[in-house]
Simulated scan of single mutants.
Amino acid sequence: MRLEQLQAFLAVAETGNFQQAAQKCGVSQSTISRQVQSLEATVGLSLFHRQGNAKLTLGGDRLLPHAKKICQIWATAEQELTDLQAGKQTELCVAGIPSACAYQLPPILQKFSRTYPNVQLRVTTLGSDRALKVLKDGLIDIAIVMNNPFLTASSEMVITRLYEEKIQLLLPAQHPLSKKEVITWRDLDNFPQAVFKDGYGLQRLVQDQFNRQGIRLNAALELNALEAFRGVVKQGSLIALLPETFLVELNYDSDLVVRSLSEPNLTREIVLVTTIDRIQIPPIQYFCKLAAEMVQQEIPVILKSALSS
């Protein structure tokens, strides 16, 4: 049973005439007749009385509501796909790491909404690993995450590099290490730290670095919000390794000290990830392009300002 057979059947049922049905469908009468005959052969019943006007048989009458429903479902699906291709999607879902959601995304979302006012934006803060998983599961359209080649190495993924940033040390002003101008990785051995929860790329990056240096990461407290680190470190006993873009504004807090660590530098790469099928949709394509342009313009300005202050 094919869709064009059901459409031919409906046209004849609505007009009561094979010739008029052919005119309505824009095909020849023989084509309509052939489609109806093929449908009758498939169901094993005659669907029309053919003396005079084409009237439905008992079998045709039973098939009619189902044929209408099937054709209506297809018409709706066709319209939705056409709207999607034209950029008329109802929502766009983005998941990002905490720093991106707090600092990079707000101006992007504002500008996007001016161009696509009818697209509802849904933004969720997630760790990198979790964000990439829900992207693969089709629950979001775009992920802004710390790059992890093990999770993004797929032919389905489209990856746009946004920026690279250093990981720096946040300390309470009265901490013993705050008196040192040059802090080495070995200096951090066994000091109690506040760290991101498991599933956040930064937590894995820091742990790997400690392993390479042969020192112990004393994870005394796990958090999942950047602002929480500020409050916890201010209490005076914990330190934290955090992204440079977040720490820029904390340079002005007299209760806190930000220090870079000596070689080797620890950096992370932030990328925007979507999928090949999604990048073809106009609003998603526009969002990706807009994010790349705005972030790549903004980040150097932020870091330059911090260095000059």
Rank of each mutant, 00 (worst) to 15 (best):
Asn147Ser: 06
Arg114Glu: 08
Leu139Pro: 01
Ile140Thr: 11
Gly138Trp: 10
Arg122His: 11
Lys133Glu: 15
Val145Cys: 10
Phe150Gln: 12
Leu135Met: 09
Leu151Cys: 06
Leu151Trp: 02
Leu121Pro: 03
Lys133Thr: 15
Lys136Ile: 07
Pro117Thr: 09
Ser154His: 12
Val119Phe: 02
Leu135Ser: 04
Leu132Arg: 09
Arg122Phe: 04
Phe150Cys: 04
Val134Lys: 08
Val119Thr: 13
Val134Glu: 07
Ala131Lys: 05
Leu121Arg: 04
Asn148Leu: 05
Arg130Glu: 15
Thr124Phe: 13
Ser128Ala: 08
Arg130Asp: 13
Pro149Phe: 02
Gly138Tyr: 11
Ala131Ser: 08
Ser128Trp: 06
Gly138Ser: 10
Asn147Thr: 02
Leu135Pro: 07
Leu139Lys: 14
Arg114Tyr: 03
Lys133Val: 13
Asn148Tyr: 01
Pro149Tyr: 00
Met146Arg: 04
Thr115Cys: 01
Leu126Ile: 07
Ile144Pro: 02
Ala143Met: 02
Val123Trp: 08
Leu151Asp: 07
Thr115Lys: 12
Asn118Leu: 13
Met146Thr: 11
Thr125Ala: 15
Thr125Met: 13
Ser154Ile: 05
Thr115Trp: 00
Arg114Cys: 00
Lys133Trp: 09
Ala143Glu: 08
Ser154Cys: 03
Ala153Asp: 14
Ala153Thr: 12
Gln120His: 14
Ser113Asp: 02
Ser154Phe: 06
Ser113Glu: 10
Leu135His: 01
Val145Asp: 04
Arg114Ile: 01
Ser113Ile: 00
Ile140Phe: 14
Pro117Gln: 07
Thr125Arg: 13
Val123Ala: 11
Asp141Val: 12
Leu151Ile: 06
Arg114Met: 04
Thr124Tyr: 14
Asn147Cys: 03
Val134Thr: 15
Asp137Pro: 03
Ala143Thr: 09
Leu126Trp: 09
Thr152Val: 10
Leu132Asp: 02
Gly138Ile: 09
Arg114His: 08
Thr152Gln: 08
Gly138Asp: 09
Ile142Ala: 11
Arg130Gly: 08
Asp129Glu: 15
Pro149Glu: 01
Thr115Glu: 12
